[in-house]
Amino acid sequence: MTDAPIDPLVIIELTNLKASGKIEDLAKHPSLAMKPEWVEELAQHRDFNVRESLAQNPAIASSPEVIQTLANDEDWYVRYNLAQNPALANYPDVIRTLSADQDPNVRFNLAKNPAIASSPEAIQTLANDEEWYVRCHLASNPALANFPNIIEALARDSNYNVRSWAAENPVLGDFPHIITKLSKDRSKSVRSSLASNPAIPTSTASNAQWNTQPARTAPTI
């Protein structure tokens, strides 16, 4: 694979940001990969705000050592920002590491990142997470398109919030048996979420919506 051409104007822009002390802006720059030595330098920066900005920059995709460093950063918000980075798609080992992070906020952010599709083990870990809100974000993640067993398990979750988020997943259209189950869910919230999902067949959505209406009572004579 050949390297992308170096744009001298971009290099000048990056140099000016560094020279003027706008380090956070430098860490966020989409073309930062043109200066890989700076990427490595910023990953070790003493200011956690700089590392946080770098962690969410897709430009770090070509720097595996930097991604690994950030995944082990002592600042939880650095790891939190990294967890939402689409660059993780090429780093299933890092995804697996973050899926077991001690901070639930990191796991929560990772669970909604489509990049997790590259790590089946991490998806399984997140599906069993003790925090229901982590499972919620996983349940609505389109990355589950190739993991029907996971989305089916989340559609049976004991927490109705998780089932509601599963009902909103845009990939549900490919799983009619899960749709049928959710359309009969005991929770009105779950049925309502399913009814509003544009991926659901109209007839099923109508039935689910009908099931959200309060039951009629006999008139008092």
Rank of each mutant, 00 (worst) to 15 (best):
A122I: 03
N141L: 07
Q124W: 01
T204D: 12
N197R: 13
P120V: 01
D157Y: 12
Y80H: 13
A4Y: 10
S63K: 11
I150C: 09
A122V: 06
E152F: 03
D103M: 05
T97K: 15
R163E: 05
P170V: 03
K35N: 06
A139Y: 06
D185F: 04
D75T: 12
P142N: 09
K112S: 14
L154F: 06
L126N: 05
P104H: 09
I116L: 13
R51G: 04
V106G: 02
P114Q: 06
T15H: 11
Q209W: 11
L54S: 11
N72P: 00
Q68A: 13
V66W: 02
T202R: 11
A145E: 14
Q213P: 00
S193G: 05
E41L: 11
I6S: 05
N81A: 01
N72D: 13
A127R: 08
H137T: 04
S187H: 08
E168Q: 15
V66L: 09
A153Y: 01
N146S: 15
A87K: 05
Q68L: 10
P92Y: 04
V94F: 01
Y80Q: 09
A218K: 10
N113V: 06
L172F: 09
N197T: 10
S63A: 15
G21C: 06
Y77E: 11
L26A: 08
V190R: 03
T220D: 09
R79F: 01
V78C: 08
V106W: 01
S53T: 01
A115H: 07
P92M: 02
S192Y: 12
R107F: 01
G173Y: 07
E24S: 11
A55Q: 04
V10Q: 14
L42W: 07
P201D: 04
Y77S: 10
A100S: 15
N169V: 03
D73N: 14
Y160S: 13
P114M: 05
V190L: 07
A153M: 13
G21H: 07
T212Q: 09
A61V: 07
A127C: 11
D101L: 01
H137R: 15
N109D: 04
N211T: 04
R96Q: 12
I67L: 12
A166S: 13
L144D: 05
V10G: 03
R46D: 14
E40V: 02
V171T: 12
Y77W: 13
L26V: 05
S158F: 01
L32V: 03
H45A: 08
E13P: 02
L82M: 01
H45C: 04
S53F: 02
S206E: 15
E131A: 05
L32C: 08
S140P: 00
L82P: 02
S31Q: 14
A117L: 07
S119R: 05
T212G: 08
L110F: 02
T2L: 12
P64H: 04
R186K: 14
A208K: 07
Q56D: 01
N128I: 00
T2V: 08
A43T: 03
S31D: 15
M1N: 08
P142W: 08
V171P: 00
E65Q: 13
A153I: 00
R135W: 06
T202A: 14
L17A: 10
A55R: 04
I151F: 02
A61Q: 11
F48V: 13
